[in-house]
Structures are given as structure tokens and as C-alpha cells.
Design a binder for these strands. Structure first.
Lengths: 201, 201
DNA sequence: TCGTCCAGCTTACTCAGAGTAGGTTACTAC
DNA sequence: GTAGTAACCTACTCTGAGTAAGCTGGACGA
């Protein structure tokens, strides 16, 4: 075991450690129920250090969210490079997303919960993450779709993000649904539309 | 003005009044930033009364959420009765929803924010509201669609709810988009699918 | 070898706001 | 009237965010 007094480590390293612990505690207990004292104790440091580095409880949350967002961006962007067409790009992006939420549950849970921080920086931060994904999709669409109507295209992008977010939460309740299956479900509705499944009577 | 000491009113009426004020304060300040003292003061009553009737801050929030949900259920269910077919029912339901979020902003803002109360009753309550809408859609679909695959149908319903929720939030930023236009955008993607809009190249 | 500097760290507080104990008043029924 | 109780209050406790002020160990120049 790495016993001994784990003391005096450089700021950058300590920050990484704090974020790691905070992500765990926030996603386990929820933001409101998590206490700075507990996080400090788990890190093995006193509370004022957290405030020294992150200014506030919300600042610490912000750092966690930003980190999760960076990872999400990385994986989804990487996934779509080299896609043959719109359908392929969409499918690859969706798959990357559904894999992310399965493999990095804590990060995802930070991103999905709105935080009761309406109007505060943290809420904006979560919203910013969605905007990131929306922009990605909007960009993708503008490359492959006729966009005589920008507003409509924007709405469609929002629509896709919201739908996938909800489907992702649904997946949490359904262990048996693999990321691949989830992607197929999403593509089914998104690409073909519900009309294709309507009973002809 | 209804001056004078507005005192001693029956419990039911006082509760309604409290919920009304609380809905305002919660949606204006956000759950965390709202204080029970302020709500009590605005109601014109002392704090222990709030606790007498709702047990806790979260209990008060719960009451607000339940009320909003009841209204949402009412309007969307009413909207879909007498629809000719699946497409019509979907369109009517969507329109009712988009009208609701425009006309009852405070109620909607309570329902959309996740509250940082993971695992607590309030979070379940918001989730319950989505389930209500999901069930509505699932029921609608099972009436009009071939459902050889229940899981797929359930996923599709979640998908629709998530997509509309996000589109609704997007509408908050776009005053110029009417509920009718929002409904059209939603139907466009949902019913016809993105394939219909893909550039043929 | 010794100062001195400062990043990393601490103890010991304040303060706001959730929640409560226990008492007071005004209506209602007889 | 007066007994009973629903509606209401004052005056607390206690938890947890945030802060003031000071301690310490090691790098680095003289």
C-alpha cells in the first residue's frame, strides 16, 4: 500500500486527484448531498485546499463537468472522421456516444443531471455540453443535407441530441440493451421515421 | 388592495397559495437558491407552517412538481382524444405539449430541471412525469403500430419524449418559433425521418 | 551551512439557511 | 360562556459552505 503521509504534491497533480474524487462523490451522492468536507477527507487534504484550487463547491463541479465534456467530445469527434456519408456518420457518432455513457458512467451522470443550478455557471456548463454535441450534428447535417431552412436544421439537431440523451438514460435501466442495439433503435426512428413502422390498415 | 391581516385561512386554501408562491420562487431562483424563509414571507406566514404542511423543502417542491404534472397530463390527454390516426394523434399531442410549455413557463421549468437530487424523491418525481408521457406515447403507438418488438417500441417512446423535451428547451431561446412551427419540425423528423431530407448526390 | 521565500498545507473560526420545540390565538360546536 | 382544536407564532439548534490567519518543508542563492 502507498501508505505514509502522502503530503506536498504539486498543484497540477493534486487538482487531478481532487477532480477524480469529486467526480466519484458527486455522482454517487448527488451534488447537493455531497459535502466538501467529505471530498477533502477522501483526498486526504483539508477543506481550504479545495477552495484554494476551485474557489467554490460549484467551481469544483464545473471542473468535473468540463473534464467529462472534453472526453465526450474527443470520442464522438474521433468516431465520425472518415465516415462515408450522413447515415454512416450519424451511426458512428451515436455508437460512440452510447459506448461512452456505458463505459464512463460517473462522467455521464454528471452531465445528465441538471443540478438545480438554474442560471448558475454549472447549469450553463451542462447546457454548453449539449451545445457542443448539437453543433457537431448541425455541422454534420449541413455537410450532407439540403438546408434551405437554417432554423429547421438547428431544430433537427436539438431534436437528435435530446432524443439520444433520453434514450441513454433509458439504457441505464436496461442492461440488456447494448450500445449497438441502442444505436440501431435510434437510427431506426431518426433515419426512417415512424411512418415506416405505422400499421397499414 | 386586499390589505388587512390576511390571517387564518383553511388548510386547503393555504396549501394552494403556498404551492403557487413556491412555484414562482423555485422557478425564478432555482431550487437550491430559493429559501424557505423567503417563500414563507411572500406567503405572509411563518416558516414552520410550510413544514407543517409539506414536511420539508423537498416536500414543497414535490407538491409543485405533482401539480405541474397533473396539468400537463390533462392537456396532452385531452388533446389526443378523437384523433383519426397515429399521425394525427402524435401531431395533436405534440402541439398540446408545445403550447403548455409556452403558456405555463414556471410549471415547465420545474419539470425540466433535474434538481441535483439524484436518488431523492424529487428526482423520481420528475422522472415519473416523463414516464407518464412515455406511457402515453407507448399506448398510442401500440394502438397504431405493429409491435413485434416491445423493447423497440419502448425505446421509440423514450426517444420521442427526449427529443421533444430538448426541442422545447430550444424553443425557449427562440421566441419566434411558435408551438405550431415546433410541432411541424418535430413531426418532420419523427414521421418522415432524416433520410427524407438527405441530399441525393 | 545557513537564511529567506513561498507553494502547499493547516486549525479554527463565521454565517446562512434547513429544520424543530413548544407555546399562543382565533374560530367552531355545544 | 367555555372546551377543543386548527392555524399560527417566536425562538431556538445544527449542518455544511466558505474564510482568516498562520504554519512548514524544501529549493535555491550567498
Amino acid at each position: 500500500m502507498t501508505t505514509a503521509k502522502r503530503k506536498r504534491m504539486p498543484r497540477a497533480e493534486r487538482e487531478r486527484q481532487m477532480i477524480e474524487v469529486a467526480e466519484q462523490v458527486f455522482s454517487a451522492r448527488g451534488y447537493a448531498a455531497a459535502s466538501m468536507d467529505e471530498i477533502a477527507e477522501l483526498v486526504g487534504v483539508s477543506k481550504p485546499m479545495l477552495y484554494e484550487y476551485f474557489n467554490s463547491k460549484e467551481g469544483l463541479l464545473l471542473a468535473c463537468i468540463r473534464q467529462s465534456r472534453a472526453v465526450l467530445r474527443e470520442v464522438t469527434e474521433q468516431a465520425t472522421v472518415g465516415a462515408a456519408d450522413a447515415e454512416d456518420a450519424l451511426r458512428r457518432g451515436l455508437l460512440a456516444f452510447f459506448v461512452f455513457i456505458r463505459e464512463r458512467r460517473q462522467a455521464w451522470s454528471l452531465l445528465r443531471h441538471e443540478m438545480a443550478l438554474i442560471g448558475t455557471p454549472a447549469a450553463d456548463e451542462v447546457e454548453e455540453t449539449r451545445r457542443q454535441q448539437t453543433d457537431l450534428i448541425a455541422a454534420l447535417m449541413s455537410g450532407h443535407f439540403d438546408s434551405e431552412d437554417d432554423l429547421r436544421a438547428e431544430a433537427a439537431a436539438e431534436f437528435v441530441v435530446g432524443a439520444c440523451e433520453r434514450l441513454a438514460i433509458w439504457c441505464e435501466r436496461h442492461e440488456e440493451v447494448s450500445p449497438e442495439t441502442a444505436t440501431e433503435y435510434a437510427m431506426d426512428v431518426l433515419w426512417s421515421g415512424l411512418r415506416a413502422r405505422a400499421r397499414t390498415h
